[in-house]
Write a protein that binds this DNA or RNA. Structure first.
Length: 271
DNA sequence: ACGCTCTCCTGGCCGC
DNA sequence: TGCGGCCAGGAGAGCG
């Protein structure tokens, strides 16, 4: 679920509450998320102080004295700072309790999320080492996308959702960005010219920035870390709108599937 | 190397 | 109201 704006929203929500705090105890209630939760976290983390939190792609890196937690929200994960005595509910898998009486709680119904610890450089972890550029950074340019996509036959939507090429763009924002750029999501990435990639890069950056301001998109279960939903769903122009009228013309929005993912587009406006 | 499927898991919704 | 089938913000693994 969470794409870059939702992860960024989470980062901004939790950071001021946990940086500087010292871990008192780790409560693990579920053995397995995407990968097994390491029971040694109960021994390793207590006593460590949270130094900083950063986002890389859709991963959150919680830097502690002696190592780093790598957290991914998967499709349905939520991180919240709560009072440590708040009763746990179904799907609350991890509580990281601090000495100040608060806790960072990880909730994830579908359990595609990830909550691991490394004492090595987290950027060298196999999940992070092959990631492409950050879409909001200066090195994410039309020239880069154009060069990277030469000879690629895969659909441009699949191409921009591949984290090797650019990170953070998930299914919702891929649909929206391609609509805004007027590009047919099924078109081969290698057959799109530099000019059109210029439009696409602008669309991706604009949409992600707007979504961050809105606190992300809540389709069903995403919550900002204070429990409020994200409000960007009110600005979605094509996602989930098949059969509705295109905002730009009189034709209706169609849906199809690309790479096993629902795809929404206007056949008239997107070429 | 590339690109396509399958897979992990729970819950909500729709149709019968 | 109950049940089966299908769908959902991701992405690693395995295959041809």
């Amino acid at each position: 679920m969470p794409e870059l704006p939702e992860v960024e929203t989470t980062l901004r929500g939790i950071t001021p509450h946990i940086v500087g705090q010292t871990v008192l105890e780790l409560v693990l209630r579920t053995a397995k998320l995407r990968w097994p939760l390491d029971p040694h976290l109960r021994d390793i983390l207590p006593g460590q102080k949270i130094l900083s939190v950063e986002r890389r792609a859709k991963y959150l890196l919680v830097h502690c004295d002696q190592g780093t937690l790598i957290i991914h929200l998967g499709m349905s994960g939520v991180l919240r700072v709560i009072s440590a005595d708040m009763t746990e509910q179904k799907h609350d898998h991890v509580d990281m309790i601090f000495t100040n009486g608060q806790a960072l709680r990880f909730t994830d119904p579908r359990r595609f999320g990830m909550f691991i610890y490394t004492s090595e450089d987290p950027k060298k972890h196999k999940c992070l080492v092959n990631l492409g550029p950050e879409p909001l950074a200066n090195d994410f340019t039309a020239k880069y996308l154009y060069q990277t996509s030469r000879l690629k036959k895969q659909a441009v939507k699949t191409f921009i959702m591949d984290q090797k090429n650019v990170v953070g763009v998930g299914n919702i924002y891929a649909n929206e960005a391609l609509f805004q750029a007027g590009i047919d999501p099924a078109r081969s990435a290698g057959r799109i010219g530099l000019k059109r990639y210029e439009k696409l890069v602008v669309s991706i950056k604009t949409i992600l920035k707007k979504a961050i301001v809105a606190g992300g998109t809540t389709i069903s279960d995403f919550r900002q870390s204070d429990g409020r939903p994200g409000y960007f769903d009110q600005q979605l122009l094509v996602y989930g709108r098949d059969g509705e009228k295109c905002p730009n013309c009189d034709n209706s929005i169609k849906s199809t599937r690309l790479g096993q993912r629902s795809t929404y587009y206007c056949p008239h406006c997107q070429r």
